[in-house]
Computed example of a mutant assay.
Amino acid sequence: MRTLVHLSDLHFGRVDHALLAPLRELIERIAPDVLVVSGDLTQRARPAQFEEARAYLDTLPGPQIIVPGNHDISLYNVFRRFVLPLARYKRYITDDLDPVFIDDEIAVLGVNTARSLTIKDGRVSHRQIEGIRKCLSGLDPGITRIVVTHHPFDLPDHFEERDLVDRAPMAMKVFAESGVDILLAGHMHASHAGSTAERYQISEYAALVVQAGTATSTRGRGEVNSFNVIRVEPQKVEIDRYGWDVVHKDFHVVNTEKFMRNGSVWTPHIDGMLAAGL
C-alpha cells in the first residue's frame, strides 16, 4: 500500500496562517509516501508569495510532486504573462513542469495545465498526452497509475462543462489505452471523488477522479479548508478527506470514500458492496 497526501490551492498571499502549523504537523504524522500539490501555490505569482510557498514546502516531507496552477502565472504583468509565464514558479518552486515519481507500486505523473492565453482555464497539449503514453507504456501492469493536474478532467454535476481542462476527451482516450487509474486535481476549491464512467463512456474503462479543496486559502467558496489522504492498493483506494475544525483549530477526517477496481473500471464501494450493484 502507498499513502499520498493531496494538497491543492494553497494560495500564498491569501493564506490563513493559523492553518499552516497544524497542517504540517498532521502531514508529518501521516508520513506519506508521496506528497502531491495540484497547483495554485500563490495568489498572484509575486516573488514574496513564491518565497513563502517555497519555505513552507521545505518543511513538508518528500518526495513531492508539484504542478503549477493558473494563479502561478502573472495576471496583470502582460510581459511576464505571455513571455515568461512560469519563470518565477521555475525559480522558486521547481523547473520541472511535468514531474514523475515511480516505484514498484505507483506511478505519479504531474502535468502542467496552466496556460498564458486563458485567465483561469487550463489545457493539455498533444505533446503532454503522448508523453504520458510513453512514460506509462513500459510499466508493470500491476503498478497503479496516477496523473496530477491543476485543472480537472471530471467534476460533480453542479459544475459547468467549461470548467474541465481543454482537450479532456482526447486525453481520456489515451488514459484508457495507458491504464491510468487515478486523476488528481484542484482548481475548483471543492472536494469530490467519483468515477469518470458517466461523463466519458469508454468501453471497459473508468478512472477514479479525486478533487481537492483549498488546503490553506481564505477563499473557501463555501467549503472549509480541506485536503485528501489517499491510500492506494492494487485493487482498492481509500480516500480520507480532512477538514478544518474552526472550534478545535485542527484538521480531522470529515468523510471516507472507498473505490474498488474491476479490470480497468473503478467503482464506488459502500458497506462491503459495489455501489453499482446496490
Rank of each mutant, 00 (worst) to 15 (best):
M1D: 06
T3F: 11
V5C: 14
H6V: 02
L7A: 12
L7Y: 12
S8F: 02
L10H: 04
L10P: 06
G13A: 08
R14D: 14
V15M: 03
L19V: 04
A21C: 04
R24T: 08
R24I: 04
I30D: 01
A31H: 13
P32M: 04
D33F: 13
V34H: 09
L35M: 07
V37H: 15
G39P: 07
G39R: 11
T42Q: 05
R46C: 01
P47Q: 11
Q49H: 13
E52G: 04
A53C: 11
A55M: 07
Y56W: 15
T59V: 03
P63K: 12
I66S: 13
H71T: 10
I73C: 13
I73A: 02
R80A: 08
A87M: 15
A87L: 15
R88W: 15
Y92W: 15
T94Q: 13
D95C: 02
D96Y: 01
L97N: 12
V100Q: 05
D104C: 01
E105N: 08
V108N: 05
L117H: 14
I119A: 07
G122K: 13
V124A: 00
H126A: 11
G131P: 09
I132E: 04
S137I: 10
G138W: 03
P141Q: 07
P141G: 11
I143V: 09
R145V: 04
R145N: 07
I146M: 01
V147W: 04
V148A: 10
V148S: 03
T149R: 14
H150P: 02
D154K: 03
L155F: 11
P156I: 05
D157K: 12
H158A: 08
E160W: 15
E161M: 06
E161R: 10
V165M: 08
V165W: 15
A168P: 02
P169M: 06
K173N: 07
A176M: 12
G179Q: 12
V180M: 06
D181V: 06
L184N: 07
L184E: 07
A185F: 15
A185V: 09
H189P: 03
A190G: 00
A190F: 06
H192L: 05
A193Q: 13
A193D: 01
S195H: 12
E198Q: 06
Y200N: 01
Q201E: 13
I202R: 05
E204D: 14
A207F: 11
L208V: 02
V209D: 02
V209K: 05
A215S: 11
T218M: 06
T218V: 10
R219L: 15
V224L: 02
N225I: 10
N225L: 03
N228F: 01
V229F: 06
V232I: 13
P234D: 02
Q235I: 01
K236W: 00
V237Y: 11
V237R: 11
E238F: 00
I239A: 06
D240F: 04
R241Y: 08
G243Y: 03
D245M: 08
D245L: 07
V247G: 06
K249H: 09
F251P: 07
V254G: 01
V254F: 03
N262G: 00
S264P: 00
I270N: 01
D271C: 03
